[in-house]
Design a protein around this nucleic acid. Structure first.
Lengths: 343, 343
DNA sequence: TTGAAAGCGCTAACAG
DNA sequence: CTGTTAGCGCTTTCAA
């Protein structure tokens, strides 16, 4: 008989964790009985109440914990659902990760999330790692190369879904970036007309042009201008990337006065825009209007902020789990409407 | 020979994932050779370059992914490091999770993080689940009952460390809340004296009095007043909990005019404070000073905000991994200084 | 009602 | 240089 784990509190070498064999010998029954009782299949095995309680008590007393590796090795489905996510350090992805975990648990799945720092190689490595953990299903969130991950999963026979950024080789769920941007642009245009009597185009600032979502938002921005009969020269669109500093540099480098209407693509960029305005146009307050494609509670309190677009994380995840529940062979692209917040 | 996974793209039943046996028969070698090559132990086994590359190429072609469950079952150490964290949906814990993952990987460990929604029961369940996954080490971040988790880990012979909130049964790493609060209070007091000629006490608002960190901050707040010779009546300390609404309600219920110096405990509370001020004292700008124990980029841009305290996430995690690397039997409480940001 | 035994995929001796 | 083999802890028939 193995020494009980309590006997020797890991001074250096681990005291072997208690197993069903330990429990079985301790009680004088068989490992299979212990297994059945501990994983709940014992009613159908018609094990006696008496034995069951003895086993459960002993497990409790010994601090027994199932060895998932061994258990999963024997089963066909792991009930593990994996997610890769670019960043946690961000309200949007943080909310996705948190809500995803909660919903996965509610669906009886064990969520494992891993963060890839927007690094394509890490993304790939992380996907492989999750496959190694035998995930039943993988969610690729904001993946720079979702199709590569889809291929990987296909060859492992694992279901995969794209979230936030679409791919062509798996069902994708994203925000409706075009519609959200269209509406935001329209709202800002209305406000600069009404409040400041400005009839010209807005400035689009922030994001990466190569990024699918930014491209969609630019399309919405352009369509809003077209539909409102406003000419939109190309240099009014400045996808200067995400860091706040990039927005500041872009405004420094602008070959014209800053227009009184600003469409800011992400709170990250907004941070830079506000810093730049405070530094270079100290009297800007009341003399311009802006809106932001992204939500932040403090940003919502800034003067002249007329609207924020918030992505509907709950809505997207609800759709996600619907699809997980009822798989289909077709690869759809589902666009979830954004929430629009007038500030 | 099993059908290749590519052959049949999981229409319904999973095509069994490729194993080392598949690879071995495919190539005409033994599973152990495949295993050795694929896990890097093949130099010491002196396997030929030729065989090694053939195996690696075949693995690549077949989309082979290690079955971690099987691998870990055979090994003694899992190199999995677990972390429980109360929320992701928050700059602070988001940063902790993200940096932790990166550092764990840099140390050759596989990080698994799970979020417990500030729910004590879920906290316990999550810890058990991570133990089931055979973590070598568990980090309990912001745990409401760290000692209970320490006991659980002790009985499984697993190392455990507390982060953010201290416990008595394991080494704990937290911010130096007392020193940070002392310095923040002192700074705000200086500013209300210099800018507004106000000599009275500040108002402390936000947080939970039962929460260890808030208690420490209150102590720092009190000590700063005492050392600067300011009398501090008890009703100037209002730990009204974390939601923004609670701060608004607390200010509504205040039995005195709002003092011109505010010590706000967390950006969450600050959100409520700013909303309340905008509503109830529209002309407050320039007539008060506040500081916040927590950092937010947009909050830093608010007028009258004279300082923010940012917890040193990188510093804390650096200490954490130092301790993981060189275990010691004593349970220390390490306090990491906060970063002080004058705005 | 219960136990024995096979085997999940992999690793690590040990034998060639 | 390479193959055989014995388990890791658990689940799951199949027998008793």
């Amino acid at each position: 008989m193995r020494p009980s784990p309590q006997a020797h509190q890991r001074p250096d070498a681990a005291p072997k964790r208690t197993t069903i064999y330990d429990l079985a010998t301790l009680i004088g029954t068989s490992p299979s009985a212990v297994s059945a009782v501990l994983n709940g299949t014992w009613k159908k095995r018609r094990i006696s109440e008496a034995l069951a309680t003895r086993i459960k008590d002993m497990a409790q007393a010994q601090g027994y914990a199932l060895n998932v590796q061994a258990s999963l090795l024997r089963k066909e489905r792991s009930h593990i659902i994996g997610m890769i996510v670019p960043k946690y350090d961000n309200r949007y992805f943080g909310a996705i990760a948190e809500r995803f975990e909660a919903m996965a648990r509610a669906h009886g799945l064990f969520p494992v999330i891993t963060c890839t720092q927007r690094d394509p190689d890490l993304e790939w490595e992380a996907a492989r790692a999750l496959l190694s953990y035998q995930v039943d299903c993988l969610i690729a969130t904001g993946a720079t190369n979702p199709d590569r991950i889809s291929d990987l999963c296909a060859s492992a026979g694992v279901r995969v879904l794209n979230l936030d950024l679409p791919g062509s080789k798996a069902t994708s769920i994203t925000s409706d970036n075009h519609a959200g941007a269209y509406r935001l642009a329209q709202h800002i245009i209305h406000r600069v007309r009404a409040d400041l009597d400005y009839q010209g185009p807005l400035l689009f600032i922030g994001g990466r042009a190569s990024d699918h979502n930014t491209a969609e938002r630019i399309r919405g921005f352009e369509d809003a201008h077209r539909d409102m009969g406003i000419d939109l020269p190309a240099h009014y669109i400045v996808p200067c990337d995400y860091e706040p500093e990039r927005a500041e540099q872009a405004l420094d480098a602008l070959n014209m006065p800053v227009p009184p209407g600003l469409f800011v693509n992400s709170t990250i960029s907004l941070e830079g825009v506000v810093r730049w305005l405070n530094k270079n146009m100290p009297d800007h307050s009341g003399r311009l209007r802006f809106g932001c494609f992204d939500y932040d509670a403090f940003a919502a309190l800034l003067p002249d902020n007329v609207a924020m677009v918030e992505q509907d994380v709950d809505g997207m995840l609800k759709r996600l789990f619907e699809i997980i529940e009822s798989p289909s062979d077709t690869h759809q692209h589902i666009r979830v409407p954004c929430l629009f917040k007038i500030t």
